[in-house]
Design a protein around this nucleic acid. Structure first.
Lengths: 223, 223, 223, 223
DNA sequence: GATGAATGAGGTTTCATTCAT
DNA sequence: TATGAATGAAACCTCATTCAT
């Protein structure tokens, strides 16, 4: 992958097709293309996501698109990349910065995920599908995004097991996996549940209870 | 939905493009197309799912495909439809036929879902995406498939709340939503977890623990 | 043209593809196909006229269509053929059976054409296009249909010239051509004129005046 | 009609599929496509008029065709549009610029129409069919093309009635309709008449006589 | 930097047509 | 007689992609 348009390293400036660092005008165009990609992902089915469509939405031509991205998926990847560093930190903080001794941490975590997916759900849904279908670039980004949460939850489970709050046979990795999946997927399907009569508040509360029960042993450790 | 090729009513025979009931030979062709669709869904990314590809796999021509389905999605839909009745009953039985007094029910439920998705995961993944993207036909089928489980879990939660096993403020609908999502999505992502070092057994055990804690209150009701 | 399905000779019974004379049931099917063709011609643009469409309208299959006609145009030709003998006689009678000494003949002729086209306009419009595009089968049928009127008008013009009612330099063939064209085409475009504010009565009256002036010299011959 | 390729406003530059004004090279290509369309209309039956055929004739690809026109009919429409302004003025002038006091005006008008249709007959024949079949875009263009003649003839009839040259009951609208139809359709069918033994001169002379008789009352007004 | 312009490629869709039943 | 069934063929249409300006 020597294509300069695919580089994702965080501290390098985006390059155009010929390898030049993009100037101010170029940056603006690239950004317009990214924004157009985001809207397109949200508006239309994944199967209809095309270079032509994105260019049209960005008020530019396909030729220009190719100055900045080798294909549609690269643009989607860039979009998720934009999200990953700040987003990953933010999500992890929901676990690490919370006071798990008190009872609010799990609720904050659940609400944080719901909020994050309310803003970025469409994008992440596409990444999820691509990852499931075996695309490694997407798999890696997903990992970078949710890994902080995963590890933090694993640590929590570890400690809980150490202090006897949860069963000794519990697997911290399993717990972190299941809880992370629950958080992302319930958040992702939120709209479906709402149209089914289950409110976001109910979802958040239930998830919080599940998390507490799973990772804090429902508080019984202190008994 | 006046297109005879889209009719889903369970007891009606499939129709061809011109509305006539398909004969024996036609039935066989239709079935071959469905099988080809299933393989194609499993083999190639959703975006590459195409009428030409399916026809080739079924050893027939695109023109023939259109005699039986108006578009690719209709074939996928038919495939899921085939699954829905038997599959829905089977999944619900995992909840309703289990002895929740003993401790094995949750484990059986988790393993049952993992097994079901091992067989039909690729298909359900596509249906999930389509449903998330707003396609109502897929949403309805999903509902029919998982509704039995959802309702059964809701009943369990209701009872648990009634006998004080779980908190009085818990929402049965929320619990059923979260647990159903967990079951389907963890099962769907299983392969990803495995490549990440988390085994299917760990997943099943963790899910079982989560279910028990959420719906049986970890047995504390008997205290 | 040895295809038995194309024979147009008036006194022969229609044949199926294999040359057999069609029985009663076959006759009915053929008639249903013809009726369907008529509706299709009237309903949809000429470019969209297809075997599939006609068969559907006739509640039968394309395979059946081919039992009776080699192609779409043959069905249209058969339709016009049905019309030709009776219609041609009827139209000619409008000229030959009228009392041209009195003043009503031209009005009757004009109204007769308007009525005839009100019923068969769509069909004749297609035949006209096909004839203009060089299809000889259609040209011949058109001739058979309108030739009676043409010849009768030519005779009238001849006589008028003989008695000095119209200019000696007038060409009976030209007059008959122009008047026949006027009658058919004004009748054919009638609906367009109406939407333009010119009533059928005005059209008939004007055509009558034109005919009288052209073929009777506006009555001055009697002066 | 928001498709930029369908805009007909006379003073706007033609647009490509993406809405951008076409540059010099694009203009040339568009023109080549139009020329190819004209030849195709003249050469082959209307039912066979196809994007592939036109593109081939223009030495380009179907994809290119779609950059400039949304469908075949749009190209035909553009062709007629090109014709309309100049052609409409030219035809109207045949009526308005002629000396109707002398006897040559009607002959000039008839010959003018025959000449105009000798050049553009195939195109106008297609437009006529489309208009008859209810396509409004074609109907409007036809109106714009022949409306000048229609109105001018109506004026003539009006004056003739005012000075008593023709019957007081005559309808100027009816007269203009019938005469316009006669001029266009006889011109359009000219070739058919010729193969039938009626020369263009005879047609012109007869039409002239009809026009004079209808709109000048054969000069009797001066009596 | 941006994009007009062109086009090969390929999927979509419909149709005419045939054949065995 | 009628038609299920299949399919080659061909048009339609859009897209990805490139290149010269």
């Amino acid at each position: 992958m020597s294509d300069p348009r695919t580089e994702l390293a965080a501290d390098e400036a985006p390059r155009a097709a010929d390898g030049r660092v993009a100037g101010r005008r170029g940056q603006a165009t690239r950004q317009r293309l990214l924004t157009a990609t985001r809207t397109a992902v949200a508006d239309s089915p994944y199967r209809d996501l095309t270079v032509v469509d994105i260019s049209r939405r960005a008020d530019t031509s396909p030729a220009t698109f190719y100055q900045y991205f080798p294909d549609v998926e690269a643009a989607v990847l860039a979009l998720i990349d934009e999200l990953t560093d700040a987003g990953g930190r933010q999500l992890r903080a929901l676990v690490t910065d919370a006071a798990w001794e008190s009872g609010d941490a799990a609720a904050g975590l659940s609400q944080g995920f719901l909020a994050f997916f309310a803003e970025h759900g469409e994008l992440l849904r596409v990444a999820d599908l691509a990852a499931l279908e075996g695309d490694d670039r997407f798999r890696q980004l997903r990992t970078r995004l949710f890994n902080g949460v995963f590890l933090a939850l694993k640590d929590l489970a570890h400690e809980a097991r150490a202090v006897g709050a949860i069963d000794a046979s519990a697997s911290p990795g399993g717990i972190a996996s299941v809880l992370t999946t629950m958080l992302t997927q319930v958040s992702s399907h939120r709209r479906g549940f709402e149209s089914w009569g289950v409110s976001a508040d109910e979802l958040a509360a239930t998830m919080a209870a599940v998390i507490d029960a799973t990772v804090r042993g429902d508080g019984r450790a202190s008994l």
